[in-house]
């Protein structure tokens, strides 16, 4: 297969590691990257790719097939649309856009210009999530009745300081920044969410943004979801604190999700399925049998970018399409709104 020529826009917190990873992806050739900040040129020199200060110049000059968008959320739609108009396939970092209406405009532009969108919800490429999806959708748990998610940890003081003080303000908190990942995971594993409710609190940090939330979801298949979210408690019960997929954070080997079905339950990410092995001995007075799954750890980012290359050449349909990214955003924003209004929201 001919290497796909890609460019990257935005060499910030996400873009810089993306550039490094893209250099390791066999299917693509990262030829250039752009950033409004000239300082980021150093990264491109290190990687031996061209640097542009102006992304428009980059997409006009280089003969690219696709771009990786790792710019601030409010620029996803305008830059994405400009790239689509040049016929470039789009990898858009999550969230797809800052609002549902902007997501719609981006999706429409992609359709009109016949380019495909892959939204960067990289957890869908985690082998743990892939396995959980296979177990749940494959019926190994019987009929899914519910799922519990805990995302509880302590963000350290510096997380909110200096240039990052926007994280104290509305929209900079754990619902839009962190929970969106949990929502996308749940949609991928359990199916569509059709109703949400949230109680939110900022009583610990007293910032304008929430620090804690208690959330209920109803899935279209009838299952219920319960989420506890907090960034102000000394806990490792979170995706980050249990999966080890973020090398910057400490983790041990607990569980952050538990899936419940009529025939079994699944502890995640320990990947242990519990069920009654003897049909004569089913019920709360009997022990459960526990079964493990052998897992192979793979780098989800490399898998994701390889997949993007196959999306560009039309070999695969995007695992997280624009519509999918839009829906994940819509559900997450609805949770935020429910927290504000105190009312459940049907989607």
């Amino acid at each position: 297969m001919e290497k796909i020529r890609l460019g990257l826009i935005g060499l910030g917190l996400m873009g810089t590691p993306h550039a490094r990873i893209l250099k390791k992806v066999e299917e693509c050739d990262l030829v250039a990257a752009s950033d409004v900040d000239e300082k980021q040129k150093a990264v491109t020199e290190e990687l031996g790719i061209k640097f542009y200060k102006n992304y428009e110049e980059m997409i006009g000059t280089e003969n690219l097939r696709g771009v990786i968008l790792a710019v601030p959320n409010h620029l996803h739609a305008p830059i994405g649309i400009a790239c689509a108009q040049k016929g470039l396939h789009l990898f858009v970092e999550k969230p797809i856009a800052q609002s549902v209406s902007e997501a719609d405009r981006l999706i429409e532009a992609a359709e009109q210009n016949k380019v495909r969108i892959l939204v960067g919800h990289q957890r869908r490429f985690s082998s743990l999530v892939e396995k959980a999806r296979e177990i749940v959708t494959g019926g190994e748990l019987g009929r899914l009745v519910g799922v519990t998610i805990t995302w509880a940890l302590l963000k350290p003081g510096p997380y909110f300081e200096g240039l990052l003080s926007w994280r104290k303000e509305k929209g900079g908190g754990p619902i839009l920044i962190n929970l969106i990942h949990e929502i996308d995971n749940l949609r991928y594993i359990c199916g569509e969410i059709e109703e949400v409710f949230a109680l939110v609190s900022n009583k610990v940090r007293n910032f304008p943004v929430e620090d804690t939330a208690s959330i209920t979801l109803r899935f279209r298949n009838g299952a219920l979801g319960t989420i506890f979210l907090s960034d102000c408690t000394p806990s490792l019960t979170s995706w980050e604190g249990t999966t080890g997929e973020n090398p910057l954070l400490y983790h041990d080997f607990g569980n952050c999700y538990q899936f419940f079905g009529t025939d079994g339950s699944l502890l995640f990410p320990q990947m242990k399925r519990r069920y009654y092995s003897d049909p004569e001995k089913v019920g709360w007075n009997y022990p459960v049998t526990e079964q493990g799954y052998k897992m192979v750890r793979e780098d989800p980012y490399i898998k994701e970018f390889s997949h993007f290359c196959r999306v560009v050449i039309g070999e695969e349909a995007p695992r997280t399409s624009g519509e999918d990214g839009r829906r994940t955003l819509e559900v997450t924003l609805a949770i935020q709104r429910s927290g504000e209004t105190g009312q459940p929201i049907r989607l």
């Binding site: 748990l141 009745v145 219920l224 419940f260 009529t262 339950s265 089913v282 459960v288």
Partner: peptide, 9 residues
Amino acid sequence: FLTDTAPGN
């Protein structure tokens, strides 16, 4: 979260 129809113990 409460369910009486899933093996969880």
